[in-house]
Every structure is written in C-alpha cells, then in structure tokens.
Design a protein around this nucleic acid. Sequence first.
RNA 1: GCCGGGAUAGCCUAGAGGCGAGGCGAGGGACUGCAGAUCCCUUCCACCCGGGUUCAAAUCCCGGUCCCGGCUCCA
Length: 476
Amino acid sequence: MAIRIYNTLTRQKEEFKPLREGEVRMYVCGPTVYDYPHLGHARTYIAFDVIRRYLEHKGYTVLMVMNFTDIDDKIIKRANETGEDPKELAERFLRIFLEDMKALKVKPADVYPRVTEHMDDIINFVKKLQEKGYAYEGSDGVYFEVRKFRDYGKLSKIKLEDLVKGARVEPGEGKRNPEDFALWKKAKPGEPKWESPWGEGRPGWHIECSTMSSKYLGESFDIHGGGNDLIFPHHENEIAQSEACFGHEWVHYWMHTGFLMVNGEKMSKSLGNFVTVRELLKRYNPEVIRLFVLQRHYRSPLDYSEEGIEHAKNNLERLYNTLENIRVAMKRAEISFRWDEPEFRAYEAIRDARRKFYEAMDDDFNTAEALKAVFEVSNVVNRYLTEVEKPKESILRKAWEFFKDVGEVFGLFEDYFKEQKAGNEEELINLLVEVRAQLRKEKKFDLADKIREELRKLGIQLEDTPQGTVWKRVKV
RNA sequence: GCCGGGAUAGCCUAGAGGCGAGGCGAGGGACUGCAGAUCCCUUCCACCCGGGUUCAAAUCCCGGUCCCGGCUCCA
C-alpha cells in the first residue's frame, strides 16, 4: 500500500514516490549547537526518527543526513558571554546533542555533516551562484539576490512585495535590496574566520544546508524536514539557492513538525519555558518521552505538561504489562491442534488491528491513530488470556509479533525484547520466589511480603496469579 | 496588515457527511491472605457560537468568538 505524505510545498497529502526505486534520501535540519537540547527539539527528532524507521520497516533503504551548524552568530555570541572558545563550545554541545538523542533512542543519521568540515564545498556553492548571476559581493559579505529567483515564496506562500512592505527584513549595509540574505559574512575583528575569494569570513546560515544536502543526497532528493519555524526564511532560502544553482526542482517532499507548546506558548529559549531533554530523562524512561510525542500527530502542536507525561507513562505501563502477560502465558501455551471461538475472535481482532496500524501509518504517519490499534491488540490479548485455560501459542505469537513490529517502528519496548538473559540472577530470583511460595503456604505472610517488598525495591516485581507467582523487571 | 494551524465528554488525543473512536482518570464488580496485573460494568451518547446546504453534519458552506504560530534567531 502506498504511503501518503503531507507536503508543505503543495499543502496537501500526496502519494509518496521516491525518486529512486527502493531508496529514500532524506535530510533533516539539525541544531545549532550552542545550548542543551530541549523537549521541543526532541519532539521534532523523534518524529523524524519514527518516519525514518517506518520507511525502513516498509523495506526502503533510507539515507538520512542531518547537519550540525557548528559556527554561527549565536555560537559566537554565547561564546563571548561565557568566555569559551566558540569551537570548543560548539564541540561540547554537539556531543551533548548526540548523547541526548542516543538516550532517546533516536537512530543516528548516516552522515552528520558539520559546517566547519565543509567550508570548501560551501565556498564553491557560493561561487557558482555568483557565476550564475544570483549572488553579488557587498561591502560586508556576499548576498543572494532574492528578486532574481522567480519562484521565491513558493514554500512559505509569502509574496516578495509583502515581505518588503512588512519592513521586517533588515536593510543591511552591503545589501542591494532589503530582502536579500547573506551567503558569506565577512569577519569582524576577533570573529572566527575562514579563507575565501571574498576575504576571510564565515558562511551564512542557509547556504550550509543547500551545500551539504546536495553533497550527500544529490541535486534532487526525496524528503527535507524540520520544525515548522524553519519554513520561512530558512527553507525558502534553501530552495532559492539550490534551485537557482541546479536549475531544476530540488526537494520533492517538504515535511514540517508542529511546535511543542507550554501553556499555550511555543517552548523556546527566549521565553525561558523550556525543559531540557536531560532534565526529563532524569525523571522518565526515554520511552515515556517517545510515547508522549507519538500520542499526537507530528504536524499538530503538542502541549507539554507534567500531567501529559504522566499519561504517557501510564499508557506505556499498560503496554508493558500486556507484553509481560504474553511472555508469562507463553510458558503454559500449547500447540494449536484445534481452534475454538476465542481463538478465532482473537486472531481476527489482531489481524484487523494490524491492518489499521499500517493504514494509519501510511496516512501521513498518523502515530496517534496507529496507537489505537496497539491498544486494541493489548486489550484483545488480555481478554483472550482471561477467557481460556490453555492459551494457544499461535495466538500469543501473533500478538507478540505485532508488538515487536510496533516496537521497531516506534522505538518502544526495546529493553523488553532485548533484555532477557542476565546470568544466574534469574535463578536467584526464582529461588526466592520458591521460598516465598512455601512461606505463603504456611501462611507466614509477613515474611512473604517482606521478600516481595525488598525485591520491588531492587526493581523486581512479584505478582501472584492463579497459575503461580510470576516476576518482572519494572521498566517505567 | 499578510500567510498558516487550532477549538472533540473530567483529562489527553484520533477522525472527518450516516456504523458516535482510543487511552488516561474516577466509581463499582470478578479474581486475590494482602498487594499487583488483568477482565467485566458504569462515567447518565462529546465535537466553540450562530446560520445554511442535505433525507442525514462534529465532519461541507457562510458569518462570528476565542487561542496559537510564521512574517526577525529558532526544531
């Protein structure tokens, strides 16, 4: 079945057809590394992570590129404030970003091009624009002449006249027109600088993405993504640069994520209403954060609140419990020599839920809708287990495999499917469980409870069921 | 001013002309020595307001109200 993607360029959902059979080339705008990433960043990168995972799950080879802006005005400014060397500051926060993303189980990009590693490519790109007559050198830098590019505004739907009228664009000393933007900034005293045909300086913000994306993904590729706030001017300017340079359409599908909101306002550094990923990870399992993000469609604004995170936590707990129920039931499951009513019902329900899951994901990666199907299976399998004495292995396996696929796409249940063996720790726990069972038989409940309590503190939860005592590791 | 996005039961989220969605929370019941997990039932059938189109609208159209975002650095 075909995937449909909402394309910001056309403002509608379109059938996804990659330029090359079986391969998806995607570029996601990475961060400017001058501070700790917050939940807003996490939201965007988790969203694109799931999109990427889903495409891979569907069998595509995905070439994923994400840039690092490791030299820029903000970095210089911050470095001046802290007295740190801009290079070191950028390096530090770049590492922190990578660590945080890893902790959030965001799959790493295939290439993380850094601006400072691509100066020659960037300079060549600017040169080409100059040769083609789209760029000119001013007193303080090289600029892109916006009005020479016919299609300017096609992504953001902004008209050039309005832009100039709005007077929001800075006139700037070296510019011919107020709407022009910098491709190369000549260095002021004390600023970091690189050699170029226009003297020492550094690249403008937009040119890096045009240069580095085409270097790794070619002069046209499938998906370019980022936060909503990048549509204008960043992505609009990228289009202008790239299409002016290449002379043909550049990116096929533009995808943008909605903001993370706090009390009705965008989470941002300037408002000071942000929660860093680190802080959050101290208090919550990364999968809780992922589920929190996935409960809302990626294009819609997502409201942050403690309560919202708690919701996600409860939801995740429920899914983990179901997984645990299946795992335990597997031990007493039997081969299906016949199916009865409950088996047929469970099978059909799981089959339908799986279909719904894929339909939802195919429809512009509707994770919120897809999650409904996940909870349906959770419910179905739990009910099945209460209905039958001896569960059939094939039914449990169907549910189990479904959760495994969901986990792969959403980046959930990872520990669960991975962490099974842990040396003889398991045997020790089993021993304690046996001892406790004996104590319970003898009605020595206080001692039995003590064992349960102490194990709970160690992260092992015991549960007494009609089939005997089972234990699980508490993940959330 | 110019472009966008919203308003869904106590809460969080989907959906998008007719089978009234999923989760959380709350209450009750089953099972338990207790706890936990799970299941069943209930939460008195929700879609900002006012018009219109239609046999039928939360969903389409018109007009409002309120909220948010972009137009300047931003994921």
